[in-house]
Design a protein around this nucleic acid. Structure first.
Lengths: 165, 165
DNA sequence: ATAATAGTCTAGTGATTCTGTCAAGTATTA
DNA sequence: TAATACTTGACAGAATCACTAGACTATTAT
């Protein structure tokens, strides 16, 4: 239940690659494709959409590629997903594009609304910087009762090493 | 993004109707259909699935219908949805039926996992009783720490006020 | 200039999932 | 035994997903 489309997933992973190289010039689609194992053609679509929203910039010609428009800490996961898939809308009732026919009769309306708002808050609080640092859960520790420990706690050492390089 | 299927939505609304009548004998599918505006045939499928899980019981013959097997306060929304749609699995990576091919390379793995856990905690903390009393959000506020990270932490005050009214 | 590199844009398509319907049952009770 | 009501499995149209294809535009190194 509640699956995120591959488009959104790939988008976040692509943004991670771009953020990762934010001090090393533009990243090409080909590089992202190889590192994240997503087809070039599909990435073209996804990155194009993100570019139009201003979240990334493209540089054409040899040596070109994509770069972040902002600091990784200023780009939330929520923003990326919202751009690619629209706002969280657990029900069509709550989709701004559709609207609700029978709000009053819909007992569960506020339930889904609250769930959606909470999901958005979660996604908005998480940034590319958190992903880069691998500590999104540390940032969540500020909220009492949160999942303890570092997000990288369960990641194998060789992976950490590769990510750090 | 992240829409819940109508099956899950209808399931919760049907359970609401059954819970609502829990002191007035069985509710027929026809009644649920009329009150919640869902076809009888589709409800048959949904309620059958819920019956098999033991969450409701059916009574056959004239005067029959469906009744809750348990107290409304003991039936969580999460349980209903899980029965109808399986566990929350933001990515196929996290679906117990599929499994992850490349856990190590999946930078975002723990991000989605954490989101999923938060959603499940939210849904598990909410029961039919909360829906019946129409104070699902107030009751949530009374249980600090039960939901990891106080899921209401970032919800705007004006929203809380509206929900509480 | 021009070749090579790299992004831009629009369609289209096969597969899958969703959202149900239909029909032929079985069980229970008044 | 008629009426009520649940049970089960098959199936089908519609929508969405997850891409692929192909033609185009822009930039830079030589």
């Amino acid at each position: 239940m509640l699956r995120l489309s591959t488009k959104g997933q790939y988008g976040v992973r692509a943004m991670f690659e771009i953020a990762r190289s934010c001090n090393h010039g533009p990243v090409t689609i080909r590089e992202i494709s190889e590192r994240q194992d997503v087809s070039v053609a599909y990435l073209e679509q996804i990155l194009n959409q993100l570019r139009k929203s201003g979240i990334i910039k493209s540089v054409r010609g040899p040596g070109g590629g994509y770069v972040l428009s902002r600091d990784p800490g200023k780009v939330s996961i929520g923003e990326i997903l919202r751009e690619l898939e629209g706002p969280v809308a657990i029900t069509s009732c709550l989709d701004p594009k559709e609207g609700c026919m029978r709000v009053e009769g819909c007992v569960t309306h506020l339930l889904w609304k609250s769930l959606g708002e909470n999901i958005e808050a979660f996604l908005n609080s998480m940034t590319l910087k958190d992903l880069l640092e691998g500590n999104e859960f540390i940032s969540l520790k500020q909220r009492p009762g949160q999942v303890p420990g570092n997000i990288m706690a369960k990641v194998p050492d060789k992976t950490k090493a590769r990510l750090a390089s």
